[in-house]
Design a protein around this nucleic acid. Structure first.
Length: 219
DNA sequence: TGCCAGGCCCTCTTTAGGGCCTT
């Protein structure tokens, strides 16, 4: 089985919205090639202001830790070089996309990478799951965890294994020998009710072109 | 200091509303 290289990323942030002044405090990411994690990126970063007690408690990242970290601009410059134009994946990608784009804009860059969302894909490929939170999907699929959540690299690694589990499902259940990034985008771009029938039809006609799906509002 | 978002899904829908998911 073959699949496109992807980078799975996760931000820990000071809150929900860069539009209200929130910024990342940590980024973690893994590069996946041929269903294996082959490289990792992790760094704390200093947002330039005091983070709340709630975020300190949620993440375990203290104000002392971020105060000693390089500033966001320095970290994001290195991160932008590291990701290049590789397709990106995140759990609830709309959230990470907001912060990625906002921080890239601060350093005069623009994202050209396509993005895919493991929450949306999980809804379509694992509809039987109790819910589609990362921790639930990790337990549902038996993904290895040392119990660390809400740290960027740990969450990125678990999301990476979720991505691998989804490509594996497309191979074992539907018979795909090639799982391009565009296939996962197509799946998340169509309604849940259509996905199973679509995938089975693709297996029966593997050379058929992917249907046109409007992705204009999806990353 | 405390506050804040928003895109997507589902359905008791589409002239809407509530829940999910991320920090």
């Amino acid at each position: 089985m073959s699949s496109d290289p992807v980078i799975v990323l996760d931000f820990e942030t000071s809150g929900h919205s860069p539009a209200f002044g929130d910024r990342p405090i940590e980024v973690g990411a893994v590069r996946i090639e041929q269903d294996m994690i082959v490289d990792r990126f992790q760094s704390l970063m200093n947002p330039g202001f005091t983070i709340s007690w709630f975020i300190e408690s949620l993440t375990g990242i203290s104000n002392d830790l971020v105060a000693a970290a390089p500033d966001c601009e320095e970290v994001m410059t290195r991160f932008a070089e590291w990701i290049g134009e590789t397709p990106l994946v995140a759990h609830n990608a709309g959230f990470d996309r907001k912060f990625l784009d906002a921080e890239l804009a601060r350093i005069g860059r623009e994202r050209n990478n396509p993005m895919a969302c493991t929450v949306l894909a999980s809804h379509r490929l694992f509809p039987e799951a109790q819910n589609h939170k990362l921790a639930t999907m990790v337990a549902h699929l038996g993904i290895y965890t040392d119990g660390t959540f809400h740290r960027a690299l740990a969450d990125a690694e678990m999301t990476g294994h979720l991505w691998i589990a989804m490509t594996d499902l497309l191979h074992t259940r539907y018979g795909f020998t090639d799982v391009p990034f565009s296939l996962m985008q197509t799946i998340t771009g169509m309604g849940r009710a259509r996905v199973d029938r679509f995938l089975r039809s693709q297996t029966q006609s593997p050379s058929a072109p992917l249907p046109q799906v409007d992705l204009s509002c999806r990353y």
